[in-house]
Amino acid sequence: MMVETPETRSPSLRSKMKIDDLNVYYGAFHAIKRANLDVPDRRVMALIGPSGCGKSTFIRALNRMHDLTPGARVTGTVTLDGNDIYAQGVDPVTVRHRIGMVFQRPNPFPKSIFENVVYGPKIHGEHNGKRLQEICEKSLHAAALWDEVKDRLNRSALDLSGGQQQRLCIARVLAVEPEVILMDEPASALDPIATSKIEDLIGELKKDYTVVIVTHSMQQAARISDFTTFFLLGDLIEVGTTSDIFTRPTDKRTEDYITGRYG
């Protein structure tokens, strides 16, 4: 029987984002060195590598979060559907509307659950109360949180558990209907049960969204991703299907890492 890889499932694999010659500097420090990567549409791409290798730095370059970091500088091109998001005249706000981000630590706003979810739709111009209710319900459903919070939508989001807060943050991103969702270690602050809920959710999300996820756990990368990219000391070492990277890496350094030689 044929091994089912992402390619075999979907021969018409399309790139959602293309990263060319990406460099990121913090002042004089060269944190990402000439990285090139294609992010396939509606697949899960995992970014792995030892701590400090630049995974967060890389993923934050994909929706122009570095614009917020004083001293950070980005060169090279990052395209979304062929449009360079760093091109002159492109509004980073619009970029982030289409490329959402979930962070390592849940960061709900100190507002009600409802207000958290509809924050994005509201700023993007949706003021119809009924529509907002619908968006809220659908997004919470999609983030597998609806059943747990449907009776207390007006309670503070800060009263939720860590895992619930993180799913709320995912719902909040889904509510603005992005095309790409970036996740920087979304489960690292959560316990195993909450983690597995998030992992299941990611499996659902890839049907409709392109997902790029940083993870510290190689098991997690293996469980949820279709493709894996390995970083080391600011260099993008290797990218391939997840099964290839974990079973027959081409680079010695990748092999050392996945066999645990970097700790």
């Binding site: 968006i135 659908k138 459903h141 999609a142 209907e177 659902e204 999300l205 049907k207 409709d208 969204y209």
Partner: peptide, 8 residues
């Protein structure tokens, strides 16, 4: 599923 119920 998620995308299907949200207007694309």
């Amino acid at each position: 599923m998620a995308r299907a119920i949200l207007a694309t």
